[in-house]
Structure formats: C-alpha cells, structure tokens
C-alpha cells in the first residue's frame, strides 16, 4: 500500500466538500470549527494508528486483510457520496463546537478513515500513517476554511474517486501475501 494511495483514499474518506457543506457560515466561527475538527480528527487517527497492531491482533485480522477492509470501507463511503446529498450545517453544536458535531463526527471521522488509519498504521507504521492521513485531513481543512461550496456535484466527484481508490486499495489487499 503506497503512501500516495493512503493519502488519496483518506481525502476521499473524509470528502472535503461534505465537510465544507456542513461548515458554519460565519467566517470566524468556521475557522475555529475547522481547527477543532482537524485537531480532533488527527488525534483520533493518531490514536488508532498507534494502537493498530493491538487492534488487529485483537480482531485476528492480518495487515493484508486490513487493506481489504479499508478498501471496502472507502468504497462504501464513496458510493454513499454518489447518491446522498451533502450534509447541511444544522443541526450542530453552537459556535466552534460545530467542529466536534457535525464536522469532526460524523463527517470527517468516517469509519473509512478510521479503518484506513488502522490498516496504514499496521502496514506502514504509526508515523507514516499519521503523516499521510494527517496531510489529507489538512487538505480537507484548507478546502473547508476557504469559501468553497460543498455542492452535490463536488461531493459526488470525490465520492467517485473514493470508489476508484477504495477498489484499488481492496485489490491491493487481495493481491498481498
């Protein structure tokens, strides 16, 4: 599993245009909320990556099969983005707390991103996993902070990329030892 594939799959798993669609409309509050959502998501990804070996051992799943799991999850989330309208900013926690709900959870921290963090952490080490997925989350944050509208077509485009990268990841796990 290459670092590029991890990063691209992570961008699709966290779909920046879905995040942008549910970001608060006020510029200042949006910045604060995005900062909170980014910090929380990177922390969660880091925790999962550090614990990845223990989690996979507990589940009796090999690193190779975890790639299949990550690919399947990215594929499912990508497919969802093709068919479901992007989320709205409301309901949300007030002010910067919108970075917790809905931006952090459930929009950025999807199951696909979590499984990807576990798989990448196990296969490439926690440092690389956090680096790649953290970079992807930063891309998501930059798009969410900018005044870019999260339209259906934009989320669906990233969703279709998620279908492609999820499939590649899944095949990568299938052909691994």
């Amino acid at each position: 599993m290459s670092s590029t594939l991890i990063a691209l799959a992570a961008v699709c798993a966290a779909n920046p245009f879905r995040v942008a669609a549910c970001a608060p409309t006020s510029t200042d509050i949006r910045r604060q909320a995005v900062a909170v959502a980014t910090a929380l998501s990177v922390a969660a990804v880091g925790l999962l990556a550090v614990l990845s070996e223990a989690i996979l051992d507990w589940l009796n799943v090999s690193g190779s099969s975890s790639r299949i799991a990550a690919g399947a999850a990215v594929l499912v989330v990508g497919t969802r983005d093709l068919f479901i309208q992007p989320p709205s900013p409301e309901p949300a926690l007030q002010g910067w707390r919108a970075g917790i709900v809905p931006m952090g959870f459930p929009v950025i921290l999807t199951p696909a991103l979590a499984i990807l963090a576990i798989s990448a952490g196990s296969e490439r080490g926690a440092g690389t996993a956090v680096g790649m997925i953290g970079a992807a989350i930063l891309v998501v944050a930059v798009i969410a902070v900018g005044n870019i509208r999260g339209t259906y077509w934009r989320t669906a485009t990233v969703g279709s990329a998620g279908v492609v990268f999820g499939t590649l990841l899944l095949l990568n796990g299938v052909t691994a030892i």
Partner: peptide, 11 residues
C-alpha cells in the same frame, strides 16, 4: 459500514 466490512473481512 462496519457491518459491510465485517462481511468482507473475517477474523
């Protein structure tokens, strides 16, 4: 999503 993944990958 985890249910779908569990169908794809077993212990």
């Amino acid at each position: 999503v985890l249910g779908v993944v569990a169908l794809v990958v077993h212990p």
